[in-house]
Structure formats: structure tokens, C-alpha cells
Write a protein that binds this DNA or RNA. Structure first.
Lengths: 159, 159
DNA sequence: CCCATATCATTGGTAGCGCCAACGTTGGCT
DNA sequence: AGCCAACGTTGGCGCTACCAATGATATGGG
């Protein structure tokens, strides 16, 4: 770390996927660092948020809602359960399923992470005006929705 | 059948870092799949692009230009060298350094990847108009530049 | 001229995220 | 009953991003 970073190839500077990647890397850095200070990581927040919003749910449903693979949900829930932020109990009506419930401590942790996350947005979007942030959200949402539709199962058959 | 993906938590839907992450994940998916079909990955393109634009360079400089860690540059260049897309030669004026040169095959591969990457942008930005794409590029560039400056070494002292 | 410091390439390790295959269990449908 | 689908779980893989340490080499200040 001495003299300034050298300029990246021009070829990349106007490529959306490169720009997205750069911003995502920075965002990921912020989230990782600050969530780590709160003994959490991205998957934990996503799962807690889904539980708080939709109530107790099976692991499969949590995976669908958060976009986390089933197998990764298992590991993340293990970590959350170790910290007493969620509880696993068998579903009496379907013995294949677990019912995951957020604990009061889980709710508090989520509130705290909400604050951490809000600050991250503030720092990430620092150079943008309020109007520009809205516009960025709008454009990104359009892209996400477009490809979410294209990837959703019912697009594979006419359901 | 409830096959469709369930909605994600509202809490996340307007969080820029979440949206960025979603778009980045999709973009990463596209890049990985299509570059793999061309026997390449993201690091390879970045390095070839830097070599094509700035000419032969040391590994450290390539790392700085592409934002790839020095240690990862080693591995990626090994792969590129195995494919005869670059050449490593010692720098006669500084025996610590290697001089990395792109081969003609490397140039051809880069041209091909340029095309692949262009198609990826097209698909990624499909739901956006030309004007909106420009706006997205503008906003993302502002964020990247802002934080690049904030992270650059000279900000650590008044050099 | 020598020594401290810095840079270089390289090795090896870690973490987070995303994904896939396989397994045994259980439920729903016919 | 028999078949297929969904569930939780285990184990594994690849890509990106980092960090620490090492030995070789330059460089600049005393």
C-alpha cells in the first residue's frame, strides 16, 4: 500500500456487470465487517428478517423466501440456534418439517442489525442524493424483478 | 402446487446493498456460466484486459489495476500461462519482478470474451432502456469512485 | 558502504456466498 | 400398495476476496 492504485482497464469502466461487482464487493465488505462486530453474517439477517415478517416457517420456506439454498439454511440455523436467536421444533402436522421460531432475543438482535444495516446503506450511498438513491433502487429493482420472473419455476411451464 | 418462489422480506426490498447483491449474484451467474463455456473465469478476463490496454506489466501492477490480490494473480496467471494466453519472463532490470506479456492467442481469447461479456450486459440490462442503462452506469460509477478514493492509500496520510 | 525498509512473487490458509448431488424420512395421490 | 414429491441433512465444489508469512531483491538514508 504505497502509491495510489493504478487505473483499471477502460474496457471495464463502463461495463455494468463490472460496476455492479465493484459496488457489491464494497457492500459485502461493509456487511461482513460490521455484522461480524455484531456476531452475525448476511445469512443470519436474511433468515431473522423472514421469520419476523412471516412468522414461524419451515426451513424450506425460509430458503425460498431468502434465496438461500436448503443446505445452507441448515448451517445458518444451527448457528442461530446456538445463539438462542431461533428455535427448531418438529411440525406435529408434518413430520418431515421443522418449525422455526424467532426468539425474543432473536427479535432484539434483528432490531440491532437493522440499525447496522441502515448505517451501511448510508455509507454505501454517501455520494448520491436522495433522488439518486431512489433512482438507483428503482433501476436495480427492475433488473431483479425481471430476472426473478425469468428464473421462477412457473416460467418453465405455463402455470 | 405452491411451486413459485415466495416473496422475500419487505425489509430487504428497498435496501440498496440487498438489491446490489441480488443483481451481482445474477451477473456472477451469467459470467461464470458463459465464461466457463469459453474455458475462462472472471479473473482471466480482468488480467487479459489490463495487459491488452497497458502492455506488459509486473504481477503486482496487474493486481493493482484489476483489484485482484497479489496471491490470486499468481494462480490466475498460472492458468493463463498453461493455456498459452500469457507469458512470464523475468524483468532484467529488476530481478524481483516478472514481466507478463499477452500472447497473440491471448489477444484472440480476449476479443472473444469481449463478445461474451457484451452479450451478458445485454441480457443483464434487458429490462432497461438505453437512457436508464446510462443512468445506472453513472450512479454506480459515482459510488465506485467515491469509495475507491476513500480506500486508496494516499487517503491514509497526506501523501 | 551498510542497513533498514519496502517491494516482489509465491505459498498456504480462511471466509462468505452460491450451488448441486445424494440420502433416508415422510406425505400425498392414485 | 406403490410412486412421486417434498423435507432436512451431509458433504462437496467453485469463485471471489482477503491475510500472513517467506525468501529474494531494490532502494534510500545515514
Amino acid at each position: 500500500m504505497m502509491t495510489g492504485d493504478q487505473a483499471p482497464p477502460r474496457r471495464l469502466k463502463r461495463v455494468p456487470s463490472w460496476l455492479i461487482n465493484q459496488v457489491s464487493a464494497h457492500s459485502h465488505r461493509l456487511v461482513t465487517e460490521r455484522f461480524a462486530a455484531a456476531d452475525a453474517r448476511g445469512y443470519h439477517y436474511r433468515l431473522l428478517a423472514a421469520l419476523a415478517e412471516f412468522g414461524p416457517a419451515s426451513q424450506a420456506e425460509l430458503g425460498r423466501r431468502t434465496g438461500i439454498d436448503r443446505s445452507d439454511v441448515v448451517a445458518a440455523l444451527n448457528e442461530l440456534a446456538d445463539k438462542k436467536l431461533i428455535e427448531r421444533s418438529p411440525d406435529p402436522t408434518d413430520r418431515r418439517r421443522n418449525i422455526i421460531t424467532i426468539t425474543p432475543e432473536g427479535g432484539h438482535r434483528l432490531s440491532h442489525l437493522d440499525g447496522v444495516l441502515a448505517q451501511i446503506q448510508e455509507d454505501l450511498c454517501a455520494p448520491l442524493s436522495h433522488t439518486e438513491r431512489e433512482e438507483l433502487i428503482r433501476l436495480l429493482t427492475r433488473i431483479v424483478d425481471h430476472h426473478a420472473r425469468a428464473r421462477s419455476p412457473e416460467s418453465l411451464r405455463g402455470k
